[in-house]
Structures are given as structure tokens and as C-alpha cells.
Design a protein around this nucleic acid. Sequence first.
DNA 1: AGTACACCCTGTAGTGGCTACAAGGTCAAC
DNA 2: GTTGACCTTGTAGCCACTACAGGGTGTACT
Lengths: 147, 147
Amino acid sequence: MSENEQAEPTLSIGELATRSGVSAEAIRYYERERVVPAAARGGPGRYRRYDEADVERLQFIRRARELGFSLDEVRELLALNDGSPSRPCTDVNRIARAHLAQVDEKLERLGALRAELDRVIGECAGVVPVADCRILGALSGGPASDR
Amino acid sequence: MSENEQAEPTLSIGELATRSGVSAEAIRYYERERVVPAAARGGPGRYRRYDEADVERLQFIRRARELGFSLDEVRELLALNDGSPSRPCTDVNRIARAHLAQVDEKLERLGALRAELDRVIGECAGVVPVADCRILGALSGGPASDR
DNA sequence: AGTACACCCTGTAGTGGCTACAAGGTCAAC
DNA sequence: GTTGACCTTGTAGCCACTACAGGGTGTACT
């Protein structure tokens, strides 16, 4: 923990992209949106330069995004991760549990939609004239034999 | 079926909105996007005028949208509904089943995400210091006790 | 005739989280 | 010195709307 700190920021945005699994354009977008701080500009040109800590930060963001956290939530999680290490992780749990509740809600809505769609499709053999199609019937008039 | 056809388009866009459950702004958007044909303009002014058939068409669109069909799919479904009534509804079924498959895929991905999120949250009691938080640990370093 | 007020019009900007360019600048190798 | 891979900023697009701004119109009532 005390000797794997590297000396200089030497990675280009393309290398950071490869190593973190986040596209260079997304990284620039995160900088614009202040999800990550503005990168140092090194070398003779004005290119962005990154180090290993940036790789880890971007991987953190990628994993959080894969779990469905919004960029607002990611910003909060990063702030907590970067903040004082001795504080209890109550807020981390609050954010994660609230997000889980949202995911559950979405799952429930999508499951209900799926069931309804399946029901509607199940009523139609698929070979009857359009005029008698139960799928179109359901869309036109509501439950089943309404038209 | 032969005598409930009304004579004139008399509804304003606001009345159509109320009766169809689709906002007036969404109706204008659908017209711009050619989901519905441009409305007739009646009266002394240049206001859009609608009839009962338009109410039904908008209800059709609303129900299809509630089932998660995209506007592209809605356009196709409307075309089939408006087309020759004796054609078999094969295409309707194809669209609906393809959409169901997409919904199933989304459900699967969301379910997997939910399980992973639940697992990550389950590892953290919520009262430990941020430095030891398993949620942040999972985001920073991968599976469980990696850091 | 005036006027208040609800409704309508078009057009534009914003949402989230990026991706996909265009048009140009920079760097290292050969 | 020149190729070619990379980098830069800035803008437009995705989806299906929503939310205005800034103005016009219809109707009811005085």
C-alpha cells in the first residue's frame, strides 16, 4: 500500500480507455460533466495525462454504471470513496439500497408489461385476417373480444 | 357498425388529448414524426380538428406505447391495422413476438444486475468505516475481498 | 365595442449518457 | 519531411417526449 504508488502521470486518454474499459469519448464526457476532475496536461503538447489512480477511478465508474447507478449517484459514491476513510459507510448503503429499490420497481413494471404482452400475443394464432387479429384488437379496444 | 360514424371533425387537440389520454404536445409530436397524418384544419382559425376515429387511433398508440412498442413499431402496427383487413396478421405477430423477445432480454439483464447489486449490498452491514465498506470495495476492485 | 381568459399555434431547448462525426493539431518513427 | 496514429474542441444525433417562450385565436361576458 505504500510502494505501488507510481511516480508520474504517463498514460494517454487512449491508454486509459483501453485499461479502464471506458471509451476516450466517455472519459472526456465525464470530465465535462465533472464526474472526474480535469486531467493534468503534460508533455510538450496539451494532451491529457493520467496515472494508475485514474485507471482505478474509471474502473470504479464503469462497475457502478454496469450496476445501473446514474452519474449523479456515481458522483456521490466517488465523493464518499475519496472522503475520510474512517467515516461509516451509511450513505453508501443508503444510495445503494435506494437504487436497488428503483431497480425492483423497474423489474416489477417490466414484468407486468411482459405478462400483458404475452397474454395479448397468446390470444392470436398469427394466421387469421388482420380484421380478426386479437393483438390489434387489444390495442384498438381493450380486453379481448371488445370489438 | 354503420351508424356510429360521426359527421364532422369537431374535437380540438385539447379535447382529443383528454379523450385519448395522450398529451396535446405528444399528439403534435406524433404528427411531426408522421406517426399520425396531419390533422385537418377547421373553423375560422387554423386550429387542428379531430373526430372519433382520431380518438381511437390515439388510444391505439397509447396502448401500444404502454406495452413498450417503439414509435417505429407503432407506425408499422398502425399501417397493418389500416391496411387491407383480409390479409393475415403474420406481420403483426412477428412485430409483437420480436418485441416480447426484446423485453425478455431486458428483463434478464435487469434481473442479473439486480442479483449482483443485491449480493454486493448484502456483504455490507452499513455501519463499518468507508475504508472497509464492501460495496465500495466491490466497485473499486472486483469480487469481494480483493482489496 | 371592449376585454378577459382559455385555448391554440410554431419553434426551440432540455432530458441521460453517451456515440459519432468534422476539422484540425501533435507526436514519434522512419 | 512525411506518413499515420493519436490527440484536441465543438457540435449533432439518439429516444420519446416535456416544457417553455412568444404570439395568435375563439368565445363569453360586460
